[in-house]
């Protein structure tokens, strides 16, 4: 029997719950593995030695996360980074645009209804100055993205991976799964998410909403765009954007809008608002995306800290 460990680091635990999404296949899984460490289900406090597979979700945000992660890497043969927070930093990565004091004061002392103005310090691990992706701290054996990884694909991925066999699945962007029609557009103007009612059957980007479907990794069945919600990029960047050093989420999106609407680049850039939260929310903490020379992430960080 293989020894399986799961660990939620700084996460919403959604990825952990999604492990149950394999429905009846969980009986097959339990015939092959023995759970030895899972803080959500068991009372074991420390990861034991000799773990075969460790499924890690969530980002690294405080000192305890960092220590647990390094212990898991030492004591396991295979580590799987599960979910967008583990692969790219996720929402916890947005902490890099604020200083540690701003965050702590905003939560514990400055809010209008807080009575006692002290910061908790007993039994609470210290916050690091930024959030890290798991892949940037240790060497990971497999990356599975998604927020959380959706059940249709999880059933095809998880069991073969435990057996050591990597399945071949589609690696295309969200647009490939979306059933809307795209075409040339005239008089393009940006609309915020709550403005107007999206039309059915035509592309949301063409209607003015900032939909990141063409630059996001798919495998979610395009559920959001099917119901009229513009894609927020929760699967991380698509592989053709990740691979090229000259392409980044921001400049590929601007190029696509340029081709669809024939507007010049400066006008499109003026229309885009709040780049941090509309375009980079899930990848801000990733060192790979920050290191691209065309990335806007270093500019955003410099601007916020001024």
């Amino acid at each position: 029997m293989l020894k399986l460990a799961t660990e939620p680091l700084a996460s919403c635990a959604g990825c952990h719950m999604s492990l149950l999404d394999i429905h009846e296949d969980i009986l097959e899984l339990l015939k092959k593995v023995e759970l030895v460490y899972s803080p959500v289900l068991m009372d074991v406090k420390e990861p034991p030695e000799g773990i075969d597979i460790a499924i890690v979700g969530g980002a690294v945000r405080n000192k305890e996360n960092m220590e647990k992660l390094k212990k898991l890497r030492q004591r396991s043969k295979i580590v799987i980074a599960f979910g967008t927070c583990a692969c790219y930093g996720g929402i916890s990565g947005l902490s890099i645009v604020h200083s540690r004091d701003e965050i702590l004061n905003g939560v514990y002392t400055d809010s209008p209804t807080t009575v006692s103005k002290t910061l908790p310090s007993v039994d609470v691990p210290e916050l690091l100055y930024r959030g890290y992706a798991v892949g940037d701290v240790i060497k990971v054996d497999y990356y599975i993205t998604g927020c959380p990884p959706k059940e249709v694909f999880l059933r095809k991925i998880l069991l073969p991976l435990i057996d050591g066999h990597v399945p071949e699945l589609s690696k295309k962007s969200v647009c490939s799964e979306c059933d809307r029609q795209m075409g040339q557009v005239k008089n393009w103007k940006v609309k915020r998410r709550g403005e107007g009612v999206p039309e059915e059957k035509t592309c949301l980007l063409g209607q003015g909403y900032i939909c990141l479907g063409s630059v996001t990794f798919g495998r979610c069945g395009a559920l959001c765009t099917h119901h009229g919600i513009p894609c927020h990029g929760c699967g991380g960047p698509s592989l053709d954007v990740l691979r090229e050093p000259s392409r980044d989420i921001y400049n590929t999106l601007v190029t696509r809008i340029q081709h669809l609407t024939e507007l010049p680049q400066q006008e499109i850039e003026k229309e885009l608002y709040d780049v941090t939260h509309t375009i980079y929310p899930f990848v801000m903490g990733s060192k790979i995306m920050e290191n691209k020379s065309v990335s806007k992430i270093p500019d955003i960080i410099k601007e916020r800290h001024l």
Binding site: Y143, I157, P167, K171, R243, I288, N291
Partner: peptide, 15 residues
């Protein structure tokens, strides 16, 4: 030959 080496090694381990 210009693809970043770190990105290459990440893509090889993508499921």
């Amino acid at each position: 030959l210009y693809v970043d080496l770190e990105v290459c090694s990440m893509l090889r381990r993508f499921v």
